[in-house]
Design a protein around this nucleic acid. Structure first.
Lengths: 342, 342
DNA sequence: ATGAAAGCGCTAACAA
DNA sequence: TTGTTAGCGCTTTCAT
C-alpha cells in the first residue's frame, strides 16, 4: 500500500488539490456537496496528511518542542505533563527532547536545531553559559523554562527562586529550628539563587549560618542528597536540626541518609525541599516542599511563545516572568511539639 | 537576520547547491579546497540545515519518536532515558510524545501520525484494542514497547510479564509468606498477565489465593495503591501477610496505606512491586521489585525499527521479543527472621 | 568532482 | 467556489 498523496485523492475525486486541501483543512468556502465527495475519496483511499510537507510550506507544524535535561527524575516529567496539558488546550502537540544537561545539545537547540520541526521551543537549560548576551537572539520562538538564566536576551518564565527558598527557610525558622543547613547551594545558578534566599531568611532572623557541609552536591538527585548527608557524618560535623535541600529529590536522599544513621525526621532533623513532586506525599515522613504553580508556568510559557510568533519582525525587549509558588507543609518539617497530622 | 538557505551559501561560495549539500553531508568526493571554501561560506553566513526540508526529500529525519502514556510517573521517564541513550549510540534523536493513554491518540500514532517526522516510532500502548488484527499493518517502522499486546500483527518487545510476576510471588512464598494478595490484576492486559504469573506461583506452591480485594485499581499509581489498601481496611478484610503490587508506584502507595494504619513493612505485611524504579531504593523500607532490563529493551526495540526500515518492501512475520528481568530484593520483602541489611 | 534541474507533498497567491 | 501553479529547502539523478 503505497503512499496516498493529495494529488491521488484529487484525481480520484475529479477535483484539484486545492479543493482537497480545503476539505482537509476545514476551509470555510467549500460547498457541502463537494466536501462530501472529496471526503469519500479521502476515506476510500485512506489518505493521511504529511505534516512535514505541510510544515515546509506553511511554516507551522502544530508541534512545540520541550527540551529538558532529563526524564529520569520526577520533576521534569511532571513539568512535561503540565506543558502537554496546556498545549493540548491550544491544539498543540508537545515533543519532548532530552538534552542530558549537555552544553552542546543545549546550544544546538538555542541555535535552532528544532526549528521547522516545532513552531516554538521551550528549553529548560542547565549548562547554557550565563553571559551569552553576545549571542544573536534566536530567529524562532524560544522561551526558557525554569531556574536557569543564560543572559538577558531571552524570554524566561520561572519561579522566584530567592523568594521560594526564603519561604522554605522562614518556615523552618518559625518552627523553632535554628541550626539550618542548606544542601545544593553549589548547583549552578539555581543553587546560587536558592542560597541567596536561604541567606536572607537567616539574616532577617538574626541567625548565623552553620558551618558549610563538607561535600559538594554533584547531582541534584537522591543519590547526591544521601551522599552529602553521609559526608556530614563521616566529617563528624555537628548535625543541624533542619535541612533545606536544593530540591525534593535531594531532600529525599538526605532523609534516607539521616534515617540510615538512626536520626528521625523531623524529631531530630527537619527537612524541606523544593518542587513538590508527587512522591513527597508518599515518603516517610511525607516531605514538606515549596510548590511551583506548574500549570501557570506552562500557560505563561505558551503565551510568550505565541507573542513571539506574532511579532516575529519587530522584536521586543525580552521578558522574565515569575509564576507563583506556595509552601506545602507536611510532616518532615513539623516541629515535634506541634504533633503530626491525624 | 533572515533564513540562510543552501542556495545562499552556494551563491556566496560561487558553487552549486549540489556542492554545498555534499559538504554539509560529508560526502566523500569533494576536493579539500572546495570543502574549505564552502565551509567558510557556511560559517560566515551561519547556515543551519532545515531538517524538515531534508526529510521531505530524503525520507529520513534522524529522529525517532517514543510515545508513552504519561511522564508524570517515574517508570516511563526512566524508560525514555534508556531509549534516548540507546538512540544516541546510533546518532538518533528521540522525540517523546505523551498520549495520555488515550485511545484516539494511540490510534493516530499507529496510523502514522508521526510518520515523516520520525524515521520510526516506539509506542507504549495502553488503550489500543487487543484484537486489532483486522487493521492494516502500518506502512512505517513501528515497534510496541512494553506490556500491552494489541493484536499479533505488530512487532513488540517487553518483559515476560507472567514470568516476572511469578518470580516476584515465588520470592514471597520462599520468604514464608502465605496469605499473598495481588493489587492491580484488573489493570488491562498487563494486569491480566501479571495475575496469571501470580496464580501460577501460588498453584505451584499449593496455596489458595486469599479473598480478592474489594476495590479495583483505577490507576496504576501511588494514589491507586493507597486507595486499594484503604478499601481493604474499611471492608474489614483479613489483612494479607504479603502484597504483590501491579508496579512499584502502586506498591509505594500501598506501603503508605499500610503504615497509615499502623502496620509495619515487612514485619506485618511484605510488599513487592515491578519496575525497579530509582525511587525504590529510597522508600521506607526500600522496596523490593522485579527489574526489567531497560537498556536491553531499548536496544532491541531500535534493532527491530532498523530491521523494519530495511525490509520495507517484503514484510516479515511480526515478532514478539522478551527482554530479561531480575529480582531485586530489598527490605520490604525480607522476612523478619532474616533480619534487615546492615 | 561539480553543475543543472526535477521533484518530495503540500499551501496559497493568482486566476477564472 | 474551485482550478492552476509557483515555490518551501533540500537531495539526487543525469550530465559534464
Amino acid at each position: 500500500m503505497a503512499k496516498v498523496r493529495m494529488q491521488d485523492v484529487a484525481a480520484h475525486a475529479g477535483v484539484s488539490t486545492r479543493t482537497v486541501s480545503n476539505v482537509v483543512n476545514d476551509y470555510v468556502h467549500v460547498s457541502p456537496a463537494m466536501r462530501e465527495r472529496v471526503q469519500r475519496s479521502l476515506d476510500e483511499l485512506g489518505y493521511k496528511m504529511d505534516y512535514v510537507a505541510r510544515g515546509l510550506k506553511s511554516g507551522r507544524t502544530g508541534f512545540i518542542a520541550l527540551a529538558v535535561p532529563t526524564l529520569a527524575g520526577p520533576y521534569f516529567g511532571e513539568l512535561a505533563e503540565a506543558v502537554v496539558h496546556a498545549a493540548a488546550g491550544r491544539s498543540l502537540t508537545v515533543l519532548v527532547e532530552v538534552t542530558g544537561g549537555d552544553l552542546e545539545t543545549e546550544l544546538r537547540i538555542v541555535r535552532g536545531g528544532l526549528t521547522n520541526l516545532a513552531d516554538g521551543v521551550l528549553l529548560s537549560a542547565l549548562a547554557l553559559p550565563l553571559n551569552s548576551d553576545d549571542q544573536p537572539p534566536p530567529d524562532f520562538p524560544l522561551v526558557l523554562l525554569g531556574e536557569h538564566r543564560p543572559g538577558r536576551n531571552l524570554d524566561q518564565v520561572c519561579i522566584d527562586n530567592i523568594a521560594a527558598a526564603r519561604t522554605a527557610v522562614q518556615h523552618l525558622i518559625e518552627g523553632g529550628y535554628r541550626r539550618i543547613a542548606i544542601i545544593g547551594a553549589d548547583i549552578g545558578e539555581t543553587g546560587r539563587l536558592r542560597y541567596e534566599g536561604y541567606r536572607q531568611a537567616l539574616a532577617e532572623a538574626g541567625i548565623a549560618p552553620p558551618e558549610a557541609l563538607p561535600l559538594q552536591l554533584r547531582d541534584g538527585n537522591r543519590a547526591g542528597g544521601m551522599a552529602v548527608v553521609e559526608s556530614m557524618f563521616s566529617a563528624r560535623m555537628l548535625v543541624p536540626d533542619a535541612i533545606f535541600a536544593f530540591n525534593d529529590e535531594v531532600a529525599i536522599g538526605a532523609m534516607r541518609g539521616l534515617s540510615a544513621h538512626g536520626l528521625r525526621v523531623p524529631d531530630d532533623v527537619a527537612v524541606i525541599g523544593i518542587d513538590n513532586i508527587v512522591e513527597d506525599a508518599y515518603t516517610t515522613p511525607p516531605l514538606s516542599s515549596v510548590a511551583p504553580d506548574l500549570p501557570a508556568l506552562a500557560e505563561r510559557a505558551l503565551d510568550l511563545l505565541d507573542e513571539q510568533s506574532q511579532r516575529q519582525l519587530q522584536p521586543r525587549a525580552p521578558r522574565q516572568e515569575f509564576t507563583s509558588f506556595r509552601l506545602v507543609v507536611r510532616d518532615s518539617s513539623r516541629p515535634p511539639e506541634t504533633g503530626t497530622s491525624p
